[in-house]
Simulated scan of single mutants.
Amino acid sequence: MPQPLAFIHPDAKIAPNVIIEPFVSIDKNVVILEGSHIGPNVIIREGTRIGRNCNIFPGAVIGAIPQDLKFCGEETTAIIGDNTTIRECVTINRGTIAKGRTEIGNNCLIMAYCHVAHDCIVGNHVILSNATQLAGEVIVGDWAVIGGGSLIHQFTQIGAHVMIQGGSKINKDIPPFVKAAREPISYCGINSVGLRRRGYSNQQIREIQEIYRVLYLSGMNNSMAVERIEAELPAAKERDEIVLFVRNSPRGIMRGYFD
């Protein structure tokens, strides 16, 4: 039930068991589903969609208009999936005409002071550590973990199951299943600990390691390495995911450590 000191626009659609604490402001055209908890001093702006069992901590601002001078007031959304936690003072802007939405998936943890800009798509089970900043139209794959204070350039893509060192400046795409660190951001091996925790077998992890040995340690350029991977390494879902990511990378993938 809302507190009497909260403002809720009469056009907002809020499930009966949502907890809304004092000094919350909820705009029109907002939907909040069952079991969510909205902490004090949270601002939820027009076009926001919040899923089930979310927990939003004090000071967060969800669905504010984009910080993009091309935005002309078009109707867009900011979507938060189920079971996602948004900590103190996080800002998540809604989309522009480019994609029409900014989206955070299910079971995510967005830590304090993170910013997710317009038209970003963040997958499921993602962790954005404190003060991570996503510029516009960034894509983050499922199960990615991004260390605190990282800065991610607009249009960058980050693959699934990636682990990124805190304080990183990311201006190249990060392919799936890897660890990324150093300055400039570089390949640092496979995220084997994370993959084991998520049920990947030793055989799958060895196959992923072999793919990245060819990609980063063979001395070939990316196009040649991808051709060799497809020709010589066994077909597998993980192999095809990596090959597709590299081929379709709009910014180019991060460098190898010895580049």
Rank of each mutant, 00 (worst) to 15 (best):
I164L: 04
A6G: 12
V126A: 06
H118P: 03
P184N: 08
I127A: 12
H37L: 01
E46L: 03
H115W: 09
I38A: 07
V162C: 01
F258A: 08
L151W: 10
S201M: 02
T48G: 01
G166W: 08
V61E: 10
N29T: 06
D142N: 15
I56M: 07
I50F: 04
Q67R: 10
N222G: 00
I8C: 04
T96E: 05
G159F: 04
Y216P: 13
I211H: 00
S150T: 12
I185F: 00
Q203I: 12
I92H: 08
F258D: 05
V31W: 00
N93V: 05
K99P: 00
N124Q: 06
I190Q: 09
G35S: 03
P175G: 04
E230M: 13
N221F: 02
T84Y: 03
I92G: 05
D11M: 12
S168L: 02
G39L: 07
G219K: 07
A181C: 02
G141M: 07
A135P: 09
I65Q: 10
T132S: 11
L244H: 14
P58T: 14
L217R: 15
V138T: 14
N130P: 07
T102R: 04
G47Y: 13
R49H: 12
S25Q: 14
G123P: 06
H115I: 09
N17Q: 03
R101Y: 15
E238Q: 14
P176K: 01
H125A: 01
I174A: 05
L195D: 06
P175V: 01
G47P: 15
A6M: 10
I92S: 10
G189R: 10
S129N: 14
G136M: 14
I158T: 07
N248Y: 01
P250A: 11
R45S: 14
T132C: 09
K172Y: 06
P10L: 00
G194M: 11
G166L: 11
G149E: 11
G95F: 09
G63N: 11
N83R: 15
E34P: 01
I65C: 00
N53H: 15
A231T: 14
G73H: 15
